[in-house]
């Protein structure tokens, strides 16, 4: 009984402990890290900053967690961010003032992209890496087409609120993450959808024999991923008050995948936890801050991130764990020999 409970606990333990360790390191090198100030109806501080900056990747990671649980992966979310940003920018520059239309356009763009991915993966049974590669390549072209090759800048107070506003003292992107998290969590854990997603990921054939419609389930997870990406794309566009088809969300799909993997999910599909995916996104962002705080030049950023990923991946590998325990065994043996 305790054994399986422990296993469940351990899934949560490692990522959370990792985040905690990073936070403690930050607090040691920069004592002001945990300092939070309440000013002009809004909280300020490094911690809030981390949350705010992690928001886009956290949003992507929520969608990505579901996709990865079905045994898939969505490489196109970065491009979808660019498309959604471009779609919103298009309407703003056309003089549309209605926020619902502007946001609706972005979300619709994300949904369409999700439907395309869902069709390719679910209904045409194309390998997910490949299927989403298509939109990853073509998506930026489409966004450039919408922007006519320019970086489109705009000024729309309502839309900018998505990126720079605050609500209940928190930056609005953080609020959006929390809302999305709650919606997706309710949708997957208060209905059977979460179990269906895990079932399709764990054994597609057996799920079919039980009457699960894997196609529809895959379609829905890619749609959720597309919507999450659209939201992230609009936050990014609102933040810089412009749509940059080339750079919006560039490589963020990789960060999102890493966030999910750091959260302990297997790329083969099956079990998922969007909570852990968000923790993974926070770890990535906190790590970036740790690098800045510790005075290491920012150019080391990528290198350290790469090393961290490799370490996390190794820690998850059963073979590496075994080697580690052997190492432990030898050192203990040595100690006892010395005695």
């Amino acid at each position: 009984m305790n054994l399986t409970k422990n296993q469940n606990l351990r899934r949560y333990l490692w990522p959370c402990a990792g985040l905690l360790v990073l936070l403690i390191i930050n607090a040691i090198i920069a004592p002001e890290f945990f300092h939070i100030e309440f000013k002009d109806g809004r909280f300020y501080g490094s911690l809030i900053d981390v949350l705010n900056r992690a928001a886009p990747v956290a949003l992507l990671a929520i969608g990505m967690a579901l996709v990865i649980a079905t045994g898939g992966v969505d490489l196109s979310v970065g491009s979808i961010m660019a498309i959604a940003g471009a779609a919103s920018a298009y309407y703003i520059t056309k003089g549309v003032d209605n926020l619902a239309i502007i946001i609706g356009a972005g979300l619709l763009a994300g949904l369409i992209a999700g439907v395309i991915n869902g069709l390719l993966v679910g209904y045409m049974s194309i390998q997910p890496i490949v299927a989403t590669l298509i939109l990853m390549v073509a998506g930026r072209g489409i966004a450039q087409l919408m922007n006519e090759g320019q970086i489109v800048t705009f000024d729309h107070a309502g839309f900018s609120f998505l990126g720079t506003g605050d609500f209940l003292g928190l930056p609005f992107p953080v609020v959006l993450v929390i809302i999305t998290f709650i919606i997706v969590q309710l949708l997957t854990r208060r209905t059977a959808l979460g179990l269906y997603i895990e079932a399709v990921g764990a054994n597609p054939s057996a799920s079919h024999y039980m009457g699960l419609n894997a196609k529809a389930i895959k379609m829905s997870v890619y749609c959720v991923a597309g919507l999450c990406a659209a939201l992230a794309g609009m936050i990014a566009a609102a933040d810089i008050k412009g749509s940059d088809a080339n750079n919006a969300g560039l490589w963020l799909e990789l960060d999102a995948i890493l966030a999910v993997v750091i959260g302990g999910a297997s790329l083969m599909g099956g079990r998922f936890s969007i909570f852990l995916a968000v923790i993974g996104a926070l770890i990535i962002q906190t790590l970036t801050v740790t690098i800045i705080l510790s005075g290491i030049p920012p150019k080391f950023n990528l290198l350290i991130k790469a090393s961290a990923i490799i370490i996390v991946l190794l820690m998850q590998s059963p073979r590496f764990q075994q080697q580690l325990s052997q190492l432990n065994f030898w050192s203990k043996k040595k100690e006892s020999n010395r005695v």
Partner: peptide, 17 residues
């Protein structure tokens, strides 16, 4: 191949249908 959902629990395997 067609029956069990290997990594899911006994409970989940039982109630899914």
């Amino acid at each position: 191949h067609d029956g069990i959902l290997g990594q899911l629990s006994i409970r989940e395997n039982m109630i899914l249908a």
